[in-house]
Design a protein around this nucleic acid. Structure first.
Lengths: 248, 248
DNA sequence: TACCTGCGTTGTATATTATACAACCACATT
DNA sequence: AATGTGGTTGTATAATATACAACGCAGGTA
């Protein structure tokens, strides 16, 4: 597998800009990514030429440019899974009263590609594009359970309840596969529980996961099976629908 | 201005993937962008390694990868203009009953950064990321009027009412500057009128535009001044607020 | 089934071009 | 005004992207 170095460097810079809080200086980028200051300058200029980065002419610092927003829209609007899933997410919110998510694998993480909030809260959809670790989210466990290659090497702790032992995780994934759904029991955010189930392709491949999340108080352990039934039912219905979509 | 060729090629490929409908083959990309088939293959592989492109293993075709969605979210959630503008957009929708937009300049086009739909329609925010030509949109005229460098060379016709003559456009921009707002009189979509006003920085720079759009029937010519007053009032209020934001 | 065609990948030699280094310049800070 | 930090740019070098060609694979067709 050959890789074009300068392109790879440019992409790494984009990721670096994305994880920064504000703007970033060239020297910071250069030292973080171990590349020459002058080379970094050229790469940033190129990124800026195409709108992928933007330079504040005053501070001479860089940040992400607007082109990435265009690309994102292009991807999201053409994604059959997302388009198809929308009504199912709405239905799920209606059935459970909790907010619903749709996620896919991206670079060893869960990428949230759609979300429907429960009734009262009318917050906008900024959570689209959010990424979370696989091992401490319900969506992530589902994606791991049916994509063996995607198992991360370490499981950093997010809360006291996070599963950090690989053996325990194996057990957890076995359970997920046999039950047909996964749960996140305050393993990512304290006080929040999630339940997720797989979305299956026309080829039988797990291409995504959908689920609900809510405060632990509204999702007590003894109600989990009942709620999980609703989640798996919707996921199954969506999978059935997806089986007609040949594309991709 | 030096440009890193291979990075530039990679970014061009991303744009090419974005404008495609479905997936794209390597040969198509190579011939469209006038690059060697083998080189294109390497570039695509590199893009795929970082999640910026995705290869369908079956058809061997490529499409955009999920990383762009992450980048987009990172940009949008950290954009002070967008965060600050939200309540003003909501207010504008409340005041006028029409749907409101917020846009910025990107690569010689208007990029829609946020949108609030009027009451009944509950469509999701997929229009974020949409781009339109400058010369036939109200937002675009505003951005052009106060950014002299951004004048495009040609003005392709979108509807019979599109202004295609550069002289006429100069007049239009003069009018925009003196009135403090711009209008799109069915110049982009037949039956749709828009009104937009500038959003101004703490430095006095026009950093964006906000506006409303609605069916011509609800926005007759004789009601334009009255509606424009509401738009400019909100834009002014947002500008005042933005004057406290030093960042960027 | 066998052949053919079109497409993607990969090996390799070449020279293009990215890179590192250093000098220069612009700011900001003291 | 002087000093230091950080960005840009010129230039020589060699690393590396590139083009070309050969190979392999899959799909379609006879």
């Amino acid at each position: 597998m050959r890789e074009i170095q300068s392109l790879a460097r440019g992409l790494k810079i984009l990721n670096r800009l994305a994880e920064a809080n504000g703007t970033v200086s060239i020297t910071t980028i250069a030292s973080d990514l171990q590349i020459d200051k002058g080379s970094a300058s050229l790469l940033l200029q190129t990124l800026a030429n195409y709108g992928f980065a933007e330079k504040d002419p005053h501070t001479r610092q860089y940040k992400l440019g607007p082109s990435v927003v265009q690309l994102s829209r292009s991807l999201l609007t053409k994604m059959p899974l997302r388009e198809t899933a929308k009504p199912f997410l709405l239905q799920l919110v209606h059935d459970t009263g909790e907010c619903a998510h749709l996620g896919v694998l991206s670079q060893g993480k869960v990428l949230y590609i759609d979300q429907v909030e429960s009734s009262q809260t009318l917050r906008v959809n900024t959570e689209v594009g959010f990424t979370a670790p696989l091992h401490c989210t319900a969506l992530g466990k589902v994606l791991m359970a049916w994509n063996a290659t995607e198992m991360p090497v370490d499981f950093p702790r997010a809360t006291p309840r996070t599963i950090v032992d690989p053996k325990m995780m194996q057990f957890e994934l076995d359970k997920t596969r046999s039950l047909g759904y996964a749960m996140d029991d305050e393993e990512f955010n304290l006080g929040v529980r999630c339940i997720a189930a797989p979305v299956i392709d026309y080829r039988g491949k797990v291409i995504g996961a959908l689920g609900i999340s809510g405060p632990a108080a509204r999702l007590p352990i003894d109600r989990i099976p009942e709620m999980a039934k609703k989640v798996t039912a919707i996921a199954q219905a969506l999978s059935d629908r997806m089986s007609f979509i040949k594309q991709d």
